[in-house]
Design a binder for these strands. Structure first.
Lengths: 155, 155
DNA sequence: GACGTTGTTGCAACACGTTGCAGCAAGACC
DNA sequence: GGTCTTGCTGCAACGTGTTGCAACAACGTC
């Protein structure tokens, strides 16, 4: 239950390497292409853990290659989301927020006052999911849930 | 538990009239001013029920007065939110979404497929609020919660 | 290695919202 | 009605993300 450092890069774990290595093939299987621009974004993502905003990713790509075009990054992110490699939600300010290689489906908790963020685990989310499922037959997409409020420390 | 028509204007109820009428005085009490631009936005809001996006409100104001400036509208909305007259959240696409004269605190449910929206009542939200309160001492701002998923009809 | 398909890119324009700042005007006071 | 204070407006520039379109290039095939 640690806070989620927003720009939270860290080293890849070994089982992630396989995931990143397979991206090229997964694209090709679908008739999609492996371009230098996609390679660059995947390289950036593979050095990222936790959450990043779209703008962050654009900036990091630009550090590697200043000619990076934002729309290409956003379009590539859409593709990678279809492959399940990233997921996106919206931060408390409505900005795009991507999480990379989600181990398990989880939601997000944001403190309005201090800005800290936490993950809502699947277990904690279960009661939310169950409530809405029972009452309305609604299938909650937990990974897209962002709940805003005030954390213990700020109250 | 009716769906929330997104552009959902309808007539004001009588007890709302008092609320709208008092806006001027509530501003003045705080040393704030009652300007033609604010009058215009309040007029638009008073003919609105349910949910509107910021862009919607700008457009409706412009219908009344084509010289309306967006930043003024957004700044006025911030002020009105402080007075509790509107509340804002973020739609499934991250856009600003205002609800007018909230009768009771409530969250929102959006179907990813058909785009329909429902309100999560305070009672339904109670389990969400209670879970996070107990587990983390986190005070959920239900009115800012938007949950995305798939509704019964779309599954 | 050359060729053709067609998925992608780069670019320009747009949409929505925010911010900084100089000048204006609401409203209090005389 | 005139004056003063300071909250508000209008404007311009920016930040983030999306979209349409023509030209380009990945990659399967010969």
């Amino acid at each position: 239950m640690q806070p989620v450092g927003s720009p939270a890069p860290s080293e890849s774990r070994s089982d992630d390497l396989a995931a990143w290595g397979s991206v090229r093939d997964r694209l090709r299987e679908r008739g999609l292409r492996w371009t230098p621009q996609r390679r660059a974004l995947v390289a950036v993502l593979s050095q990222t853990r936790g959450h990043v905003t779209g703008a962050d990713l654009v900036e990091r790509c630009r550090e590697q290659d200043p000619s990076t075009i934002p729309s290409t990054v956003y379009r590539t992110l859409d593709v990678l989301e279809e492959l399940g490699i990233v997921r996106h939600g919206h931060g408390p300010d409505g900005r795009e927020e991507y999480h990379v290689l989600p181990d398990a489906e989880h939601g997000h908790l944001h403190c309005r006052d201090c800005g800290a963020a936490w993950e809502i685990t699947a277990e904690e989310g279960a009661s939310i999911v169950a409530t809405l499922e029972a009452a309305r037959g609604f299938a909650v997409d937990l990974s897209h849930v962002t709940i805003v409020g005030r954390c213990r420390a700020c109250r």
